[in-house]
Design a protein around this nucleic acid. Structure first.
Lengths: 187, 187
DNA sequence: CGTGGCATGTAATGGGTTACATGATTAC
DNA sequence: GTAATCATGTAACCCATTACATGCCACG
């Protein structure tokens, strides 16, 4: 649950920066809201897993992972992966395609295809910028960031495979649906 | 939210059967628990969207979609698809692969690969059985079920593409990780 | 005659999102 | 100076899962 606070392993940063990193770095496979991040950071601080020092600005803090926090994170990572129950609104609508109408299904799939295409270009951008993470990479933490990068690229690759699969499926499904749409009575 | 009750469109059935259908038919892209199904059915009944008649056994009922219910379902289907925020525990662990250790990552990916392989055989089984849904297909509803089948197969195809993508990614990732594991100090 | 599957619900609990509330700093 | 961004937190609320509670019926 507090797993995403492990971003502090990569580099010490503020809670706000954690939120940005979750959005920009983990965004394609993870998400977390303000309402979780700050309480989690507080709890971690209470338990001595993170240290809190004044940041550059007034009222801002930078959080550091303590050795205890590092150990705790490793323990959490070893925990079995909790598989989230599937809930795919697109496929559910498609399942009821006979009630929805083939034309509407085609629109939905075209949207999904376009989304996947957009994801692919986002991944391409990530691969293009070699190291230049503008924010959140402090001086001393550079080696930690480079050590993490190959693992990060593994998750990017997962996204790419998934997006390409979506595109291939969409093309196939669109072909099937145009045939179904021809059989279907006009509304 | 009450969308999965649209299964009554395919065939009238009991709440218990709805739960089984969600697990067996929609299982690869949707899930819903008891605590949702029964209250949803009650609400639908209150609003006149479903009719409730005595089932075969004592204490059991069979739910039928009324014309109003059918209209309501179509309206719900036309609603924009709510994209669930991503939360992939496997990729999160992989992202922290440097902290977890390459060996542990390999184990995780091998598990994911095996899961995808299992999904593929489940999909193959679905394609093999032509129409023979043993439960939940009453006499009169047979034509409704056949009309739905091509759309159902679209969702199966999505699952197949996704599973194959997982397998391809896993093989690639495992190759990368064995190289990383060689560089990594023994624990 | 008892175990397992069919059948229907309710209540507690929890995880997470949204909205609210506030203030400093920077860039235009 | 004023708007956008950085920054931190809290509180209400919602959706959903889990566990609980109950009972009938068929099969061995």
């Amino acid at each position: 649950m507090a797993l995403s606070s492990g971003l502090l392993w990569v580099a010490p940063m503020s809670g706000y920066a954690v939120r940005e990193a979750i959005r920009d770095v983990l965004g394609h496979f993870w998400s977390e809201s303000f309402g979780q991040i700050y309480p989690a950071l507080s709890a971690l601080h209470r338990d001595g897993a993170v240290e809190r020092r004044d940041g550059g600005r007034a009222g801002s803090s930078t959080y550091f992972l303590t050795p205890a926090g590092r150990a705790r994170l490793q323990e959490l990572l070893r925990q079995p992966v909790a598989s989230t129950p599937p809930r795919n609104g697109l496929l559910l609508r498609l399942f009821f395609g006979h009630a929805l109408g083939a034309k509407a299904c085609i629109v939905l799939i075209e949207q999904a295809r376009a989304d996947a295409e957009r994801s692919l270009s986002a991944y391409a951008e990530i691969r293009a910028e070699p190291e230049a993470e503008p924010h959140a990479v402090a001086a001393g933490a550079a080696e930690a960031a480079t050590a993490h990068r190959p693992y990060w690229l593994l998750t990017v690759s997962a996204g790419e495979h998934s997006a390409r699969a979506t595109i291939a499926w969409a093309d196939e499904a669109l072909a099937t649906l145009t045939a179904l749409a021809a059989d279907e009575p006009e509304e």
